[in-house]
Design a protein around this nucleic acid. Structure first.
Ligand code: FES
Ligand code: FES
Lengths: 141, 141
DNA sequence: TCTAAACTTGACCATTTTAGTCAGGTATGT
DNA sequence: ACATACCTGACTAAAATGGTCAAGTTTAGA
């Protein structure tokens, strides 16, 4: 169980973006420099964030990206979903009656993974970009 | 974020083992057949479980594996730790003062990943093998 | 109008991880 | 003796990861 850097970078970059978003759009080059993330990689990530309407782009000189929603309305769930960072704990298809072992019944640990998935998603749903802006906040779920 | 099948199988196999453990040791071959896990792979996994004193082995004919502790005392944490399934959310070294970006300060999302790690580990610590034995139990953390 | 900044797209790739397999062992109950 | 079952280490195909590279298009500003 781990977190890939695509999701990690996406959140990082959005926090950075939210901070500097006040007046002008923020260029990826700036984010790249401030956060130490490869520019080319950022472009891939923001392409997805844009498709999912989390950010808007402004082309041309002085262009950049802008949040497309209120930081309070951007949940971590949305971000992860946008960059295909999937919290996948069950192995089987959820709709299917079949188990992950190909047998006709769900495996003996199915319920466990399902619970875990809920547990993690709850965390992500309760956390918005705004929560991350105030740096030293104590948040317990 | 995902779960690898090594950890998944370990839990599966241990639940199976706990169920059939009453009188005789349980052979990996049986677990392999019942759960649809490759025997060779199971051997790797049980080798680690044994090193971590979660199971005991009994060699020879009619041999097999036996739990080394009360199911109530085997937490998911222990199992995952045994098979090197790591819940690693922060990227940086925890002890180090350096951030994941190599800079002198922790990155702007460090606290978030740290909270997440705690959140997940809490789940694993509160869940024992015994909890998994009664199949249709409702457990909410 | 020209140019540089910045977004856009898609192909490409090296490395690492995963999920095993294979080939040999060794111990032991019957 | 011999079958059963544990034990160990080496090996590997396939997928995921974490990028890079190249070739655009758009637009503000000089
Ligand atoms: S995870 Fe759903 S059947 Fe095994
Ligand atoms: S995760 Fe700890 S500094 Fe980035």
């Amino acid at each position: 169980m781990k977190l890939t850097s695509k999701g990690r970078y996406a959140v990082m970059a959005l926090v950075d973006l939210a901070r500097f978003d006040n007046i002008n759009p923020v260029s990826l080059r700036d984010i790249s420099l401030r956060q130490g993330i490869s520019l080319d990689y950022l472009e891939q990530i923001f392409s997805k964030l844009k498709k999912n309407e989390i950010v808007k782009s402004i082309r041309g000189t002085q262009g950049g990206y802008v949040l497309n929603k209120n930081p309070n309305d951007i949940k971590l769930t949305n971000i992860f979903h946008a960059v295909d960072e999937k919290v996948k704990t069950v192995q089987c298809k959820k709709e299917s009656k079949k188990g992950c072992n190909g047998k006709a019944t769900k495996c003996i640990t199915h319920n466990l993974w399902d619970e875990l998935e809920i547990h993690i998603n709850t965390f992500f749903e309760n956390k918005s970009l705004k929560d991350l802006l105030t740096n030293n906040k104590e948040t317990r779920v």
